[in-house]
Computed example of a mutant assay.
Amino acid sequence: MSDEGGVTAAALDNDDLLGEILLRLSPLPTSLPRASVVSKRWELLATDPDFRRRFLAHHRKPPILGVFEQRGRTLVFTSVLDPPDRIPPARFDLPDPGGLAFDSWTLPGCRHGFVLILFQRLSLILMFDPISVDVRALAIPPGFGPRVEFPPDYTICACTISAAVLCDAGSGQGHVHGDCHMSPFKLAVVGTFSGGQHPAVARLYSSKTGIWRKAVWTPGPCAGTVSRLPSTLIGNALYWWLDESEDEILKFDMGKRRLTVVKRPNFTGIPSSCIRIIRAEGGGVGMAVLSYPSFQMWGRTVSNEGVATWMLQKTVNMHDIIGLPSGLETSNEVIVGYSEDADVVFISVSSNSEHYTFVVQLESMKSRKLNQNLLENSYHPFANFYTGGTDGV
């Protein structure tokens, strides 16, 4: 006899079949905990480490749990999930970092389960794992402000830096990003200099060796300064937006250890808050450009002769995608976040005193309205597998 879900009682008595059923539960925070309370047998299976590894491998991509932001001297987490999966902000509070003064710091971004906190004046980076509540400190090597080691032909000037972290476990043994807290990692730091007369610099750290590689420089001057917007990882390269530049972005190829300035389209009249570097259709570097209601996606291709070309790949009416009432007058439309792994952008739209935030999946162009309002362009999506407690409301 079958139950209402069409699953036979005999199937539920078979551990292998039950495991296959539980594997297909949603990867949201409450799925496995709720399954665990069905019976002791379900609990033993759902909490088994081997089953958890299979669960992660089955889903591959972790869900976006929320966003981190820098709010004054505080690192703030906001869950973007609906009840009962909504995670209280306090669950991901940063532990006491040992007396560090949070009066001069930046939040370069989140990736593969890590949150980066950069103290440029102290030449220090904190790597925070909100799931395990682990914090690692890493000193930034010489070559970055306030004292800069230029090649002999260059003078010293102020330095603006950013950083990016990524898991270095690889995928050859079935590793799933989102379970990286015990995995080796890479940390990249880039710096640009005021005046536009000097090259940009980058260095790469590997936890496998415990050393920083030698500094690499752009072949020529870098006119822009590296932005506080997070980097975008595409293949083995990291890309940063350059402020004060009309048509350039910064690329750090970690495999070739090459730092270059890459030409991009000049989106005249569109603020940087409405543009994000994304992974384009086909897997190359691209741009998402919001000039509401128009939303464009651009992609860069390189010919066999090495000639790079930017092409407009997609144009959609974002007003239709997010489903706001027709005739509604909007203002302050901003791209407030981007997740390369989930291939989504977060878009904030204001209308009179109302604010709306949407998550838009770039391949399908389907949207979901959030219950939370994200008003600025400095939010950092955080994706991971999490089975801890939630507020349930």
Rank of each mutant, 00 (worst) to 15 (best):
N236P: 04
E246Y: 15
F252G: 08
T30Q: 00
N371M: 06
L122N: 06
R368W: 03
E149P: 04
F193V: 10
I140A: 04
F358E: 08
D343C: 11
L12Q: 03
V190W: 12
H181F: 09
N317Q: 07
M127S: 11
G283H: 08
L122E: 15
V349R: 13
V334T: 15
F77P: 04
I278V: 15
N332G: 13
A237R: 02
R279K: 11
L44V: 09
V336S: 15
E340A: 14
V289Q: 02
N14L: 02
Y239D: 04
L324Q: 03
K186W: 02
T47V: 05
P130G: 11
S227Y: 14
L12C: 06
L138V: 12
F51T: 07
P83M: 06
I278T: 04
V393L: 09
R368L: 04
P108K: 03
F267I: 15
S291Q: 14
L324F: 01
I131T: 05
I322Y: 07
G299K: 01
S326T: 11
A137K: 10
C167K: 06
L187G: 01
N352Q: 14
I131A: 00
L100D: 11
C159L: 12
L290K: 02
D243E: 14
E149V: 12
L94A: 07
F119H: 08
F51I: 06
A188L: 15
P83L: 10
I140R: 05
R258D: 10
T218H: 11
P221M: 13
W105R: 09
Q361P: 02
E363I: 07
D50N: 08
S194N: 11
L100N: 10
H181Y: 11
R41M: 10
G113Q: 04
S294P: 00
A158W: 11
I322E: 01
V261A: 09
S79I: 01
F55T: 03
D48Q: 07
K214E: 14
G220C: 13
A10T: 09
L81W: 09
P142S: 09
D96W: 06
E329N: 12
D13E: 12
P89R: 03
P221Q: 10
I140K: 00
V345K: 00
Q361L: 03
L17C: 06
S31H: 01
S31F: 01
R86C: 13
L28Q: 01
S326Q: 13
E246R: 12
A101W: 10
E329S: 14
E69Q: 10
D13N: 05
R276I: 01
L23M: 07
A158S: 14
N14A: 01
D247F: 02
D243Y: 14
D343E: 12
T78A: 09
L44Q: 09
Y205H: 03
V76H: 11
E4C: 06
K256L: 05
L126M: 13
E333V: 12
I125Q: 07
L124R: 05
T260E: 13
V176M: 04
V201Q: 15
Y239E: 04
A90Q: 12
Y338T: 09
R203H: 09
N14T: 01
S294M: 02
Q296D: 12
T106R: 12
L25S: 05
L18Q: 08
V201K: 13
V189Y: 13
T209S: 14
P146W: 09
R203Q: 14
I347W: 00
